[in-house]
């Protein structure tokens, strides 16, 4: 069941991509109105990469904390 749910999510999110693409097709020529849309929307990519790297760091931090907890438990037992 869990696996099915996960596959469902993946498909749903892939469809979102299509919607995003369709929207882009409708508005091929738009004037850059703000910072994020300037320079050929390059800053959108910057935002994506910053989010990914920040996410990876949060994940590593969690892992670090978990291992620290395990080490602490082991020290108390010993």
């Amino acid at each position: 069941m869990d696996k099915l749910k996960r596959i469902g999510f993946v498909i749903a999110f892939s469809l979102l991509q299509v919607f995003a693409f369709a929207q882009e097709m409708n508005t091929t020529k738009e004037d850059p109105t703000d910072f994020m849309r300037s320079n050929g929307k390059l800053y959108v990519v910057v935002a994506v990469i910053v989010t990914i790297v920040a996410g990876l760091f949060i994940y590593l931090l969690n892992l670090d904390r978990k291992i620290s907890r395990l080490e602490k438990d082991m020290k108390q037992k010993a």
């Binding site: 390059l42 800053y43 990519v45 910057v46 990469i49 910053v50 790297v53 920040a54 760091f57 590593l60 931090l61 670090d64 620290s68």
Partner: peptide, 21 residues
């Protein structure tokens, strides 16, 4: 086990990933 260099890595990579573009 110290955390200052992990924070430094985070700050530097945030800077790199934005300023890099």
């Amino acid at each position: 086990r110290q955390s200052w260099w992990k924070l430094l890595s985070f700050v530097l990579l945030m800077y790199v990933c934005s300023m890099g573009f």
